[in-house]
Write a protein that binds this DNA or RNA. Structure first.
Lengths: 192, 192, 192, 192
DNA sequence: CATGAATGAGAGTTCATTCAT
DNA sequence: CATGAATGAACTCTCATTCAT
């Protein structure tokens, strides 16, 4: 209606994408990606079907945006907490941050784990996710190497497997899963 | 194809269900349940679309059959290996059996984990899976109790989380995942 | 199994056709012709799907047989009761016979009226039904001519319309429809 | 096709529904409800298959709309013509109006009578039709009561049966049925 | 910038009919 | 004579995507 600066336009676009993305996040986690129609997302977001195509090229691109946007945040926790010289303190901090993050981002993780299990959908992200993941592997390996592990990369993958397993079980059965115990258990395991 | 003896009919039915089920297993694991059409399954199985409905009432029932049939096998490993009085030997045997089983049943596990992450699909199995799972929890708890763990149930869920996490990561990245190392690592962790 | 005379074979065939026809009659009247599958008819009749095709060439031929077989009976009532020289007594008898017949053959009439209303299905019978109907028109016209009606054919068609209307309303709302009153009313109307 | 004013949208919707409804009316009357596919209706209406589902939730809802919309008009004739104090003039007017209406709405009546004969389809309308019908019964009964009939309700149902029978026979055999004679006959019957 | 009517491909499912047994 | 497994066309309905307004 009124002229805006380019900055305003970009901000506006980012906000609209957020609104749509949030609606999609909720629905994808409840019904799955394939079972959620663009119509439902539009209704949930309070916009028209057509508008979604102004902000995203396709339903898949919407999913890509949703995943890649948040994946950076998720993998970023490791990077930020550990830094270049990981210590026991920073390692413990990282674990703590992840447990906090998971509880807030259950819906996202549900979609994420679901995607990991579908090669045909996973193709959309494979490169990006694997690149970021291996990046994190390396960073953590430094810590395990410092701690004297013979095969730091394998230990890294074992450690991440534990986290993934815990989060997956927590998502599936949030009410009964002993998340706090799992957290202290893994802390004891690695930090004595 | 009839009249035949009833025995022949039953055998034939079981065989056909197996053929269809195997085709579905392959495709579901590659594409996911929702993205796999009955047409594709029929083509893969080498039968007509309509025939699938002679053997299964619906696409969902086909999935249920596929899952529930194999889930018994999967959960059965724990029961069989551990028995009523679990020892270190039987516990080690169970872990070993699971690692073997997982390598053979990657496709199934992929579908299984995918289902766990989709509430709308999970509804089809929730009761059966949860009942069986809690059954296994109890059985394993006996072992951890014998070993002197303060909170055996939490330890059970922690232990299972580790297994789940390992298998999930293995499925996602079979070529590079250090499965053997993960196995010896978990054995060391619990059995000295 | 054992050799039979040709007569026995014919009788056997007629009996089987009757069994199948009766099952179809029940289902067609409840669900309509198009909505009743051959499978359902087979189950209701206690025979296999394939067997139905031994006795009838197609689902349509089964319907044709069902309709044409009973239509003769229905139109026959007029012929038999009226005879060549219709009197008040025979006319009254005919009305009485029709009211009796209708109560026994509600299911058939329901199908019959339904068919009359669907040109595409009606095509299967048009010739036969129309021929028989016009035959009856002529026969009744004799009675109305004898009674001095100026336009006996129109009166015939009017009279038959009344019967049809009564039966249709009776079928639709059997519990509440005053069938007995309708009968005495039409008798009074024509026989003083 | 939008944004438009709400008024435009409503008008557009009503027009589209009319186009689809008219196509369906034609085909249903020729082929019957069950034998007419959505594809055929779409082709006849000159729209895509999918669009029909923008305007009607299902094929059944389309039928409901088609029937209930016109049924009001049909039963309305009695109410409007008779008014609260039915006279011979208004009764004659009603009969005349019905005969006119029937000739214009042959296609509708064909569908309507067809539906009445199929319990499984009739279920969709039973309540509405029966309620409206009994409403008309009461209104007409007033006239017959005024005319001194002992059992006005039975006479009403008899009278309506005659009309139904005439219309049904007229629809089946429009070219030869003596509709005008039937009309004068029924007028003579009740109005001397 | 925003709408939702419109499309058309394809989904799951049913079913009349055939035919090896 | 009798069976029901097998087929394939057709059905109702859904949905990602487009585009006139």
């Amino acid at each position: 209606m009124s002229p805006r600066t380019e900055e305003q336009l970009i901000k506006h676009k980012a906000e609209k994408r957020k609104v749509i993305t949030q609606a999609a996040l909720k629905l994808f986690s409840e019904e799955g990606f394939q079972s959620t129609s663009i119509s439902k997302i539009a209704k949930e977001a309070g916009v028209s079907k057509g508008l979604i195509y102004t902000y995203f090229e396709s339903k898949e691109e919407l999913l890509r945006f949703l995943i890649l946007d948040t994946i950076d945040e998720m993998f970023g926790i490791a990077e930020v907490s550990l830094g270049i010289n990981p210590t026991d303190e920073s390692f413990e901090k990282m674990i703590s941050d992840y447990f906090d993050w998971v509880q807030i981002n259950r819906a996202f993780l549900q979609i994420y784990f679901g995607i990991l299990m579908q090669p045909s959908v996973m193709k959309l992200f494979e490169k990006e996710i694997m690149a970021k993941a291996y990046n994190v592997f390396e960073r953590m390996s430094v810590y395990f190497k410092n701690k004297g592990f013979e095969d730091p990369l394998s230990e890294t993958r074992f450690f991440i497997s534990i986290l993934d397993g815990i989060y997956m079980n927590y998502i599936m059965d949030s009410e009964n899963y002993p998340l706090a115990k799992a957290k202290s258990r893994i802390l004891t395991m690695y930090l004595k």
